[in-house]
Design a protein around this nucleic acid. Structure first.
Lengths: 221, 221
DNA sequence: TCATATAATTGTAATTAATACACTATATAT
DNA sequence: ATATATAGTGTATTAATTACAATTATATGA
């Protein structure tokens, strides 16, 4: 029984890339130039090469599409239904990436291309089973926001409590009480003060950074 | 760019099959008859065929190994490191199955074979990266016990509160307070009374079953 | 039948966590 | 000086979790 006794499926990685821009949760999509689903928008992805791990393949695709490195990247789920790709048997390992909006601004300038950020509120029809992948990703994103510190990967290194609360409100699509939010967050003891930001025309906010080595707080799944 | 422009990895499913036997969390392992890792114990698994989905492949392997159908089965994580299989590039989609100890008793009779149940407390050295897969599975199992009703899939249809508490204690490897456990469980309103079991030499316990359509209570991940 | 063994069943007080809710502080702009 | 804009903060209520032990129902053996 050698490896070549079995016909092999193709394996791809597809990456759900989230960022927060203009107070909105956005998703990077690419317009397909070829069949199948030519002209439809799709989650970026591609074939896994034999000399790279799944994570490396996802990272490579991510960098090719966005130019950014060092982003939060996590595997989601592997989709392997028979008919998910009309070209043949293609199994895709889906990933989720969270990109800092700062770094993104550089890229979003290149706008009239076949790679675009879409608001999660106004998504086009998607190719393949990408709608399903995206639904899964959004669930996971919210779960991760609730139980870990991944949210901070979408902020600049120094940030205010208001900024954090804002991205939570965007991701959960609801408002939180300022006092309770701050209380809970500060109680966790994961933030380090960094002096106040004086360049605002109102009471200047305290700047914080995530304490080093905090990671994701909990590391399940 | 067709599918055949890329060399393809092999894809397998590996299934971490848990059950509870003799008040102990057990895991089904198979002894490898061939290289690589000949003689070592491994999580059951095998190649995904082109005419079956990942879930179907896992279900087939599970049935081949244990003979049982209709078990709880969930995808865990996909492992795709370059060197995880010395034969070449093999990506494995791992699954976790929870098997009712009742149904299992039939199979565990066939014991002196190359398929055996091992206590999680006394595991042999495992082939491939199966130790990593198993560690992941145990985390997931505990998480699922905490947040869903999968535990009931390891019990007969009718069960007592004590039986449930027992399997929780086994899985978490710690004891829980009887009063608080029962309070919390009954408060969930997911159990249906089924009369009392009179065949015991002590106060007879109430039998319960899971209300129909309860599912997993929460369905994230 | 009476005593014993065994596990089932049940409640309350204390602590901790989550929620609801509104005013004061500090900077810039005019 | 006043207006504007956002930051920062506290307390009371409710809900959830935890800690903790006596009583009950049945079978068995004396």
């Amino acid at each position: 029984m050698t490896l070549n006794d079995y016909p092999k499926p193709s394996v791809t990685t597809d990456i759900v890339i989230f960022t927060i821009q203009d107070d909105d949760l956005k998703l990077l999509l690419v317009k397909r130039g070829l069949e199948p689903f030519k002209g439809k928008w799709a989650i970026p992805g591609g074939f896994v090469r034999l000399n790279e791990s799944l994570q490396e393949a996802a990272k490579r695709e991510l960098e090719e599409e966005t130019g950014v490195k060092d982003v939060y990247l996590e595997q989601l789920y592997t989709f392997g239904d028979l008919k998910r790709d009309p070209r043949g048997r293609v199994i895709t390992v889906s990933y989720m990436a969270l990109v800092n909006s700062d770094k993104i601004k550089l890229i979003s300038a290149t706008d009239v291309s076949d790679t675009q950020w879409f608001s999660m509120k106004k998504l086009p029809e998607l190719a393949f089973d990408h709608k399903k992948i995206l639904e899964y990703a959004l669930k996971r994103l919210r779960w991760k926001f609730e139980y870990t510190t991944v949210a901070f990967s979408m902020l600049p290194e120094k940030f205010t409590i208001s900024q954090i609360q804002k991205i939570y409100e965007i991701v959960f699509n609801k408002e939180f009480d300022k006092r309770n939010f701050a209380k809970k967050l500060l109680y966790l003891n994961i933030l380090k003060e960094h002096g106040i930001n004086k360049n605002v025309s109102h009471r200047p906010p305290m700047l914080y950074s995530l304490k080093p080595n905090i990671g994701e707080i909990i590391e399940i799944i």
